[in-house]
Design a binder for these strands. Structure first.
Length: 223
DNA sequence: ATGTGATCATGT
DNA sequence: ACATGATCACAT
């Protein structure tokens, strides 16, 4: 099995991404000696890891951009036959303590979303995983409108957290960015700020991009 | 437990 | 049909 080197320039990365467009996951998996699972029930991150490997992402599971030297984050996104995202997009875990002084500008969310390489993948469950096609890659950075929406949602959500109101926060908050559980299961716990300002235990949360938002990003690529 | 990669599956 | 809350695998 070959280990692709990490691309040295954005052009090199994009050329590689364009080169795999149109291939099926099965074809790509075979070229890397990966075994394609029957379904993704127990292999939820398989597609992302396959594409990471093909493009030479350094990542691992460290809290860094996939292509640190290029400042680019890689995200595969499952789409239906019309090109509409099937799932929300995970961004990062949410900080629940020691958040005094944290601003949008210094947040992990804003840093991760500065530049994203989106790789659409056919995700309809009636298509066998091995036959799902890889789509045209999109290099995206938020425009002013998108940035304003993201910042507004982030600030609203973080205010709830800072005020110890995390129990009142649901995925319904936020126009484009939402907070949802992110952990092994509902019994996972982490520290958070309680209503009285002290510490309590809660389920770890993650920031996710809502579907209409990512849908508009994908659409924008065809302007 | 935390963070990476995400999708599953149930209720509405 | 759809989004929310829950869940899976793996590395550290």
């Amino acid at each position: 099995m070959t280990i692709p080197s990490s691309p040295k320039t954005i052009d090199e990365l994009m050329n590689r991404a364009y080169d795999m467009a149109g291939l099926t996951l099965g074809q790509l998996a075979h070229s890397h000696g990966f075994t394609t699972p029957e379904n993704l029930k127990r292999d939820k991150g398989w597609v992302g890891q396959l594409i990471e490997h093909e493009l030479g992402a350094l990542a691992g599971s460290r809290p860094e951009p996939d292509f640190l030297h290029l400042g680019i984050e890689l995200k595969t996104i499952p789409v239906d036959s019309k090109g509409k995202p099937i799932e929300t997009t995970y961004v990062t875990v949410a900080p629940l303590i020691d958040i005094q002084g944290l601003t949008w500008e210094t947040s992990v969310v804003s840093h991760k979303l500065q530049t994203v390489l989106w790789v659409p993948i056919q995700g309809d469950r009636d298509i066998p995983v091995s036959q799902r096609q890889i789509g045209t890659p999109i290099l995206w950075s938020p425009n002013e409108t998108e940035l304003a929406l993201l910042k507004q949602d982030w600030e609203e959500i973080m205010e709830f957290i800072a005020l110890g109101q995390i129990k009142q926060l649901t995925a319904r908050h936020g126009e484009v960015l939402q907070l949802r559980p992110k952990g092994a299961n509902s019994r996972s716990v982490t520290q958070s700020i309680g209503p009285n300002g002290s510490t309590m235990m809660t389920n770890p949360r993650g920031f996710y991009l809502k579907i209409p938002f990512t849908q508009s990003i994908l659409s924008r690529a065809f302007d």
